[in-house]
């Protein structure tokens, strides 16, 4: 009834009609935000990648244990944060590509190559992105600890440390201060260390997450810290740590460990 509509003032129902047949819009929102926070710090010959295990939607907690940090190879660990379904699917696809690489080349993909692979995979979905922030941590071919951080469409950068997710704004300025020594002046004749020792890094990671848990409702429940050690790096710092597990697969290369901690559940 286009002719009739044009004679009627818009929005007012016709006196003889039951209802106005106006245009209707339906929409399906394919994304949601599942909270949580991830964090990675690179050392001289190690890399630490951590994430909390709470998964939430709005004010509801869906589970208190949903890992966000995944071992890819013995030298690479990937943390994914944002939309959990996309995150899990993305990790699955990255692992598939790494397996193909292993079959084709009879070796694990180097870290910097994984980083570039992740960029390509993310940008491939430029117009229907994986709604996730990725942080890749591990050991480079030269034996140095590395952290690569990504945005959802694949812009990436190698850094010494990075926080992402719900509590990024709480954690990142703390890391700027404690890792990069921002706003701190070294005593005359001295300089700040470029790389921190592993025990210090582990303390900072735990402090960051307890702090974020205290002030952010989407962070808490559990903490998983992955530690990747370079080939031949000392395990001394990891000895005596409560509940530490090794998940290394190969023998003579880098080693991967997991530390699990409880966080407040309120």
């Amino acid at each position: 009834m286009p002719a009739m509509l044009s004679t009627q003032p818009h929005g007012l129902p016709h006196p003889h009609m039951q209802t106005e047949q106006g245009p209707q819009q339906r929409q399906f929102n394919p994304y949601t935000e599942n909270g949580g926070t991830i964090l990675a710090i690179a050392g001289k010959d190690f890399s630490v990648i951590a994430g909390d295990t709470r998964q939430s939607e709005g004010y509801s907690i869906q589970t208190r244990y949903a890992p966000k940090v995944f071992r890819l190879t013995d030298r690479a660990v990937l943390a994914v944060n944002g939309f959990a379904a996309d995150g899990n699917m993305f990790v699955k696809k990255v692992r598939q590509r790494l397996e193909w690489y292993r079959h084709a080349h009879a070796k694990d993909m180097p870290l910097r190559a994984i980083a570039r692979l992740i960029q390509t995979m993310l940008y491939a979905r430029r117009f229907f992105p994986y709604y996730v922030y990725n942080i890749l941590g591990g050991i480079e071919e030269d034996g140095s600890g590395a952290v690569y951080s990504f945005d959802p469409v694949g812009s990436y950068e190698r850094e010494a440390c990075r926080a992402a997710g719900a509590a990024q704004s709480l954690v990142q300025p703390f890391l700027d201060n404690q890792i990069y020594f921002k706003n701190q002046t070294p005593a005359p004749g001295t300089s700040h260390p470029t790389h921190l020792p592993l025990p210090t890094v582990l303390k900072l990671v735990i402090d960051s997450f307890t702090g974020a848990t205290e002030r952010h409702i989407e962070v808490g429940d559990g903490l998983e810290i992955y530690v990747v050690l370079a080939k031949g790096a000392s395990t001394q710092a990891l000895e005596g740590i409560r509940g530490i597990q090794e998940t290394t697969v190969t023998n003579d290369g880098e080693r991967v460990f997991i530390i699990q901690r409880e966080l407040k559940k309120d």
Partner: peptide, 11 residues
């Protein structure tokens, strides 16, 4: 404020 909370909680 959110940044202040994060750093203050740590320091």
């Amino acid at each position: 404020s959110s940044k202040l909370f994060g750093v203050a909680e740590g320091l």
